[in-house]
């Protein structure tokens, strides 16, 4: 038996996440220095304090949080990291706020590859840069194998609400035009078709994007927009139902006006899912007085995120709380909230 001639040093160069990476000790620092700081560093994070000390602009502040548990973590068109940044940025922006600062909390499963974590952190940094926000405080916890699914991320954010803007889901008025910024269902179907062990390939990509710069341009042109929402889980159908209920108005939309990409529609047909029920991560629904609708459309269409913007319907003083669709054949039907988990039909 040969004995190693030197004392074995503790391993600090791991390829995967270890329990000790979340224990606050040496390995936590390694994780910080090796994975997080090189990509996220800024004058708040660099201080390594337990909190960020912020100077917020005068006026009202918007504050929002969301937790991201998407599976798979990497999907066509993005990953959980940029989703976590864009999602909270958009939640702030649709309230009329200029997003400023985010926090990021990570729950990592033991054994998660550090290279994957770094890719995720890099795309968070890129998304934050694009959206013009800073990630100013963060936290990491590691849980045992099987106690979470690879990686969960929570982000919270604050933003400065623009002067003279009052966006609320209770503000819809009969006669308003409803504008949608582009095609529906891209994100949800990108996830579905990469997750569900389907034996078909698709080219569908997530639409994950930050909407704050498009929203700023819209509000510069028409500060009096009544309401904005990003139609994420539950899709455009859920968003419209929430708006109709909150404002006690009816909504009428035209089936032929709703943009759906051919491959998304094909996948929805195969799985028996209504594209209006499918999640989006880079789309905007807004309600505006009809006299201002053309101006809003013009501004949106000049942006990358809104170039396919269309008027999809109007707000009516009828069937309060209900969304009704005029079909391509001239008949009418209810557009309802999806019920829980999306279930593929069986024949």
């Amino acid at each position: 038996m040969t004995i190693a001639p030197v004392c074995p040093a503790p391993i600090t160069q791991h390829e995967t996440v270890q329990m000790a990476h979340g224990a606050g000790g040496r390995l936590s620092q390694v994780l910080m220095q090796r994975v997080f700081m090189p990509h996220l560093h800024n004058h708040f994070l660099d201080l390594l304090d337990d909190q960020a000390k912020l100077d917020l602009p005068p006026g009202r502040t918007a504050f929002s949080t969301d937790t991201y548990v998407v599976s798979p973590v990497f999907f066509p068109g993005g990953n959980i990291g940029e989703l976590a940044v864009n999602g909270t940025v958009n939640d702030l922006a649709v309230g009329g706020a200029r997003p400023l600062y985010l926090s990021a909390g990570f729950v990592l499963e033991e054994g998660f590859p550090l290279a994957d974590l770094e890719t995720i952190v890099m795309s968070m940094a890129a998304a934050a840069l694009k959206a013009g926000v800073m990630i100013v405080t963060g936290d990491t916890k590691v849980v045992g194998k099987g106690q979470c699914d690879r990686i969960f991320i929570n982000t919270a954010g604050v933003g400065a609400i623009r002067e003279g803007v009052d966006l609320s889901c209770r503000n819809l008025k009969p006669g308003d035009s409803l504008i949608l910024s582009g095609s529906v269902g891209d994100h949800g179907m990108a996830i579905m078709t990469s997750r569900q062990n389907l034996s078909f390939q698709s080219t569908i990509k997530s639409d994950s994007a930050s909407l704050n710069s498009m929203i700023a341009e819209v509000l510069d042109a028409v500060p009096g927009v009544h309401a904005m929402r990003d139609p994420t889980r539950g899709g455009v159908a859920a968003t419209l139902n929430e708006l109709a209920a909150a404002s006690s108005v009816g909504i009428e939309i035209n089936e032929t006006a709703i943009p759906v990409k051919p491959d998304v529609r094909g996948a929805c047909e195969l799985l028996g899912i209504d594209p209006l029920h499918v999640a989006n991560e880079g789309k905007l629904v807004l309600a505006v007085a009809s006299k201002d609708a053309d101006r809003v459309l013009e501004v949106m269409r000049a942006t990358e995120e809104g170039r396919d913007a269309v008027i999809i319907g109007t707000v009516v003083d009828d069937h309060h709380g209900m969304v009704v669709m005029r079909t391509a054949f001239g008949s009418r039907r209810i557009v309802d909230l999806p019920l829980g988990e999306q279930l593929p039909r069986i024949c």
């Binding site: 079909t327 054949f329 001239g330 008949s331 009418r332 039907r333």
Partner: peptide, 9 residues
């Protein structure tokens, strides 16, 4: 039929 409102037509 119901989704497309064919019964109404």
């Amino acid at each position: 039929i119901i989704r497309n409102g064919i019964d109404q037509l």
